[in-house]
Design a protein around this nucleic acid. Structure first.
Lengths: 107, 107
DNA sequence: TCGTTGGTTCGATAATTATCGAACTAAGGA
DNA sequence: TCCTTAGTTCGATAATTATCGAACCAACGA
């Protein structure tokens, strides 16, 4: 009885948990993915995590998804990821901007 | 040949590492400590971590210190901790404010 | 000098997270 | 129907982090 991605959870905005979000953000690879997504363009997993094994990339996507930072839309055999900008912003104003611009200046 | 706290490291502002900082922030207890320190008042370890065993509290202080988020000043037998507000702000503008106000609204 | 106080460090154990090959699955195309 | 593509899930192992009692240490006061 396992859930495949097609039924994956995306927590409601209200349920976003700050420590969980900060943990998801505490990894260079994941920050890089989010930074890429920050332009609002959807991207497939392959486009974002091509520098590592598929299972590793998938793991990191899951962390981000479970934290509520990205949404994954399944279309055919592709999984399109997008940043949940407005929802995170509504719950934690300024957080995403601060983190992503911090990342860009320190990279 | 061990280093006691009196010679503990406090990383230079320039060396602040974002993933490390975000990891340090990804714990409710540590967020609570920082939130308390945000008023600018120095506090001893005992005042901040009285809800847990000394060794656990000390561990969390170390994480925060190593990340460069707090400074620990030793005076007599007391260790006074303060938030490194300006330094973190200078390196990562808006980050601390965003995280701490996010924490306060979600607690 | 002895005890106390405030906190660190050690050491052992538990818990969480990361990594990645291999098996799997759903969708699409030939 | 068979093959391929894109990505997930499993399973095993390694690495990191957390927890906390116990030993320790430096400063202070009696």
């Amino acid at each position: 009885m396992f859930q495949h991605m097609s039924k994956a959870r995306h927590p409601e905005s209200v349920d976003l948990d700050l420590p969980r979000i900060l943990h998801a953000l505490s990894d260079p690879g994941r920050l890089e993915m989010l930074s890429t997504l920050a332009d609002g363009v959807e991207r497939t997993c392959g486009e974002l995590g091509s520098d590592q094994p598929k299972s590793s990339a998938s793991h990191h996507f899951r962390i981000l998804r479970d934290a509520g930072l990205i949404r994954t839309r399944v279309k055919g055999t592709n999984h399109y990821n997008s940043l949940r900008t407005e929802e995170v912003e509504a719950r934690f104003p300024g957080l995403l901007d601060a983190v992503l611009s911090a990342w860009r200046t320190s990279r």
